[in-house]
Simulated assay, not measured.
Amino acid sequence: MIVVVGEQVVDLVPAGDGLLRAALGGGPANTAIAAARLGASVAMAARSGRDSFGAAFTNRLASSGVDTRYVVPTRQPSALALATVDETGEARYDFWLAGAADFNWRYTDLPQLEAGTTIHIGSLAAFLQPGAEAIEDWALDHQDRCTISFDPNLRPVALSKPDSLVRLERLAELANVIRVSSDDLHQAYPFTDPLTTARRWLANCNLVIVTHGSSGATALTNDLEVTCTPPPVSIEDTIGAGDTATGALLAWLQANPWPSTEAGLGGLLRFVCTAAALNCTRVGADPPVLEEVTRWMNVPGRDVRRD
């Protein structure tokens, strides 16, 4: 079982003529849904808002096959984000998070998990107090019996906190597996090559995948380093692409032996890149299902469009 911990966010997405539409998102929730659609056994630990979005979030998880037993109902509102999409489909976000349910975790709200479970943490919930401290302590207490996955999914609102880089390094040291974007690493360490940071993190981590947007991704272990380019796609927007990449990574690791060879690591990375590319063919965070990714694996040069 994979247990994903973190936020659910209502993305306000451009709908033309100056209008907006509400799309259910949030990095960890998107990651859980992507992993489930790609065949993994997944549960989501989330704090659900009191508003109508709270119920909609839970229904979204359940309809994608995510176990919702660890969703905690609250009397607080759901988090909101205004998504601005540029001419290339790249999304940027402005957040409304004050008082939101997602960031008020207490240690006792979080489940005690069995040995062998994979825990995924990251994004805003891993950085914003008071809940970030509870999540970090909880993950640390599970470190000896669970695999820890981490996706920083850094946003300026998280990086603006005084201890953000210290917490980033602590969480990276805690993790066994990391998926991080080169944009994240440029924000955190603007004068350091992202792969240099990834190689440094391998002192404590077993696998780091650095995604480079439309340029593909690089997977690194202490013994191997593999790169991959995604299939060419017709981009609607990039919302949720990184989350889908993380979900694909988790699903692949659950279903396959550890990638100890170049071929194995390359197969993992092709799966991750293809899943993320397919997400970009849809509006908003809409991860593909396993059959779609399998169909498009190893189809170089073909334009991927939503059927």
Rank of each mutant, 00 (worst) to 15 (best):
Cys273Lys: 10
Asp163Ser: 09
Arg199Thr: 12
Val85Ala: 11
Pro300Ile: 07
Pro257Gly: 05
Gly264His: 06
Ala277Glu: 12
Thr246His: 13
Ala91Tyr: 06
Trp201Cys: 05
Leu24Lys: 09
Thr31Met: 15
Glu169Cys: 00
Ala100Ile: 06
His186Ser: 12
Leu265Val: 05
Gly122Asn: 14
Gly122Met: 14
Pro28Ala: 03
Ser181Leu: 00
Trp296Arg: 01
Val180Ile: 13
Ala22His: 11
Arg170Thr: 06
Leu224Asp: 11
Cys280Arg: 02
Asp67Met: 03
Asp223Pro: 08
Thr197Phe: 13
Phe95Gln: 12
Thr227Pro: 00
Gly39Phe: 02
Val10Phe: 05
His120Trp: 04
Asn104Met: 01
Arg306Leu: 08
Thr294Asn: 10
Leu171Ile: 05
Gly301Ile: 02
Val42Ala: 10
Asn176Arg: 10
Ala126Pro: 07
Val10Leu: 09
Ala56Asn: 04
Thr211Pro: 03
Pro257Val: 05
Pro111Met: 11
Gly266Met: 07
Ile135Gly: 11
Ala32Gln: 09
Leu61Thr: 08
Ala62Gln: 10
Ile121Cys: 15
Gly49His: 08
Phe271Cys: 03
Gly27Gln: 10
Val5Trp: 09
Glu90His: 13
Ala132Pro: 13
Leu207Arg: 01
Trp252Tyr: 12
Ala198Cys: 08
Phe191Asn: 14
Asp51His: 01
Arg200Cys: 05
Gly264Met: 10
Ala91Pro: 11
Asp193Phe: 01
Thr192Gln: 07
Gln112Asp: 15
Leu168Ser: 01
Pro257Asp: 13
Gln76Gly: 00
Asp67Ser: 11
Leu113Thr: 13
Asn222Asp: 14
Ala175Phe: 10
Ala15Met: 08
Ala36Met: 14
Ala251Leu: 03
Thr74Asp: 01
Ala285Thr: 04
Ser64Gly: 10
Ala43Phe: 02
Ser214Ile: 00
Gly27Pro: 06
Ala285Arg: 08
Ala56Thr: 02
Trp96Gln: 06
